[in-house]
Design a protein around this nucleic acid. Structure first.
Lengths: 231, 231
DNA sequence: GTAGCTATATATAAGAC
DNA sequence: TGTCTTATATATAGCTA
């Protein structure tokens, strides 16, 4: 009966806290859903749920992105809607099981990776400096690579595959970062289309980036997966 | 006067939509804040705001993570709270300007990077296979590196620094992924402590991972940056 | 623990300025 | 546009079964 106006503090009683969590989670998700629908923006809510064995991301999916420039894209709408609806259906099937853990992964990887990367840059720089004095100089053999590359000290963990992957990743990230909004959008569409052809392949964060409207996992309402993109 | 019960559909009127967005954003953020406080969980809300020139992440900061195991850590509480409060104050100063764009960056990098990485793995694998046949084999000179590493074809973009960064990043990510929850937590504390000593350095996503309680940027309430960690 | 219920607190649409 | 007001819709605390 919400007789008191709730004291805004951590609820120490376990069952009361859990009950509140459940209720408020539902309410919050409804709000998220509504905001997404009413204003046509992407909304994502993530909760590290203390009632799971690990801190988990609560899978409130990405809202639909409505482009501000949708008016400029009228001719593409039908095509895009079709593509996306189709792809979304596929993606949806693979989403539920993977979303949560992958979101966790993705977020934590980024957090830890970027952070550690910076934390360790001095160390790396030192090593690079040291390596610059190595007698092993392969500049002649591999003129386009920095001479020090070949002189990297033993790193047993580092395989060619890892190196290749990370290099390519870095290059591609640069490329994508240089895209403008429209280019990114088109690229995402293409990605989804490819994914659609090959639905067994990974359902990573990237796959649903702009695609997940507020979904089934909260039993709020249905029909949100329809082609409401680019309205 | 909320006389009608709102039709749950995209608001076509621009100013009305923006007004609703503003109101509801505030409400939503308050809910997020409350849920975070009441239930002691991390909550993050992200909105791609259509009123900005690009899709932007709305900087609803990470909620405080209260560890489920907090009871097991009573003795550490005071120490940790102190550390975190201190660090948080520093971080807060650098947060506002950077949070939004960096969150966007981080998320999009991950989306694009991971996705493109997978998309391009076949290509990479082909190149690796091709390289295996290169006459330039440095196995003898660099026994601990895969022989093909030194035989990588010219990649003008790839500098030693980039390679080092990405390699280290990959290695460290692996390391962090293998940590358990407690280890991660301690690591984050250490990271923050380091950051505190060097506050000018980057205020990246990683820096505030588990740290941002619902903050000033919404003018909801204050005092949320206090030591409510590990209550 | 889960599922309603209801009184009340809170959020907010629409209006006034 | 932004802010304030107010009627009403919605969310939910505390209760019951």
């Amino acid at each position: 009966m919400t007789r008191k106006n709730v004291k805004l503090a951590y609820i120490t009683n376990d069952s009361a806290r859990k009950a509140t969590y459940k209720k408020r989670k539902k309410g919050l998700m409804k709000k998220v859903s509504e905001l997404s629908t009413l204003c046509g923006i992407n909304v994502c809510a993530i909760m590290y749920n203390p009632y799971e064995s690990q801190p988990k991301v609560w899978p409130s999916p990405m809202g639909v992105q409505r482009m501000e420039q949708s008016k400029k894209m009228v001719n593409q709408e039908s095509f895009l809607s079709q593509r996306i609806s189709k792809a979304t259906e596929q993606l949806k099937k693979h989403c539920k099981d993977n979303w949560e853990k992958e979101m966790t992964q993705v977020m934590f990887n980024n957090i830890s990776g970027e952070r550690l990367l910076d934390e360790n840059m001095r160390e790396i720089d030192k090593r690079i400096a040291a390596l610059a004095n190595t007698p092993l100089n392969l500049k002649g053999a591999l003129p386009s690579l920095s001479s020090s590359v070949a002189a990297l000290p033993p790193m047993t963990m580092v395989t060619l595959e890892v190196i290749s992957r990370v290099i390519i990743k870095d290059m591609l990230q640069t490329k994508v970062n240089n895209m403008d909004q429209i280019q990114r959008q088109q690229w995402i569409i293409e990605m989804m289309n490819n994914n659609n052809k090959n639905p067994q392949t990974h359902m990573a964060f990237g796959g649903n980036e702009m695609m997940f409207q507020f979904g089934d996992n909260i039993n709020l309402n249905n029909g949100l997966w329809s082609n409401t993109f680019f309205p």
